[in-house]
């Protein structure tokens, strides 16, 4: 177990190093990209859609940070076993370390990207409350939720190539069904419920509340999010366990 822990650590280190090495701005990109994205959204939505929401930049940036973490972690963990196929045919490595490392790298990037978020809070004179200290819990819930999906998808992507294409499209669809950059209450009634019952929305709001509303999410929301995260993790582990033995034959 200790060994797996080391292995995840080194794999995360590798992912970050490889990502930032050879790029001029390096880790700054992780901070800059969501800011630029937020600027784009702000421009588009304040000029075209105009919904009334106070301090939209902070609302949008929290959404973008969360979504980047979620979609990148899913994509990377989904590809993690395929990408290491040659190695997995030769060495008995516990497969789970690869999706694990992918999601943990995502968390590291998310935490890095909190720096420009903090800057934005200060610049826009947004209320900074003690609720921010709740963020580690919110991130832990998001980690658990994403890890479940990553664990399930990594073997499935080994068995069926289509999974990758399918999930890519599904991720785009889900992004629109999650209030990443629009407020939930602009939705017409007959759509509202889809977004409302979307578990990712629940996990996102637990992350957004401490920053945007500077309050700890209400206990009902929190327990729903935690329940979704635990369900996702349990299903992920179950699928992973069921397919683990067959991975070596397909990879």
């Amino acid at each position: 177990m200790r060994l797996h822990h080391d292995l995840v650590f080194v794999l995360v280190k590798r992912e970050l190093k490889v990502r930032y090495r050879g790029s001029f701005l390096g880790a700054i990109w992780t901070m800059l990209q969501p800011l630029l994205m937020m600027l784009v959204l702000h421009t588009v939505f304040s000029a075209i859609f105009r919904f009334s929401i106070k301090n939209y930049p902070v609302y949008a940036l929290t959404g973008v940070l969360f979504w980047n973490f979620f979609s990148q972690s899913i994509t990377n963990s989904m590809n993690s076993l395929r990408g290491n196929a040659i190695l997995l045919r030769k060495v008995a490595v516990p497969y789970a370390v690869f999706p694990f490392a992918a999601v943990v790298s995502g968390v590291v990037n998310l935490v890095l990207a909190l720096v420009p978020l903090l800057a934005l809070l200060i610049v826009t004179d947004h209320k900074i409350g003690p609720a921010l200290l709740f963020l580690p819990v919110a991130i832990a819930i998001a980690l658990l939720f994403t890890l479940g999906a990553g664990l399930a998808l990594s073997p499935l992507a080994v068995f069926f190539t289509d999974v990758i294409e399918f999930v890519t499209v599904l991720l785009t669809l889900t992004m629109y069904l999650t209030p990443v950059f629009y407020p939930k209450d602009i939705l017409p009634d007959h759509f509202y419920w889809i977004v409302h019952y979307n578990p990712i929305r629940s996990v996102l709001e637990v992350f957004r509340d401490p920053i945007y509303l500077s309050k700890i999410p209400p206990i009902q929301h929190l327990s729903v999010a935690l329940l979704c995260a635990m369900a996702s993790f349990a299903i992920g582990v179950w699928i992973y366990r069921k397919s683990e033995r067959r991975i070596a034959f397909f990879v």
Binding site: L3, V91, V93
Partner: peptide, 9 residues
């Protein structure tokens, strides 16, 4: 990286 993959601590 490689030595960890091969099972060394």
């Amino acid at each position: 990286l490689n030595a960890l993959l091969l099972g060394l601590s």
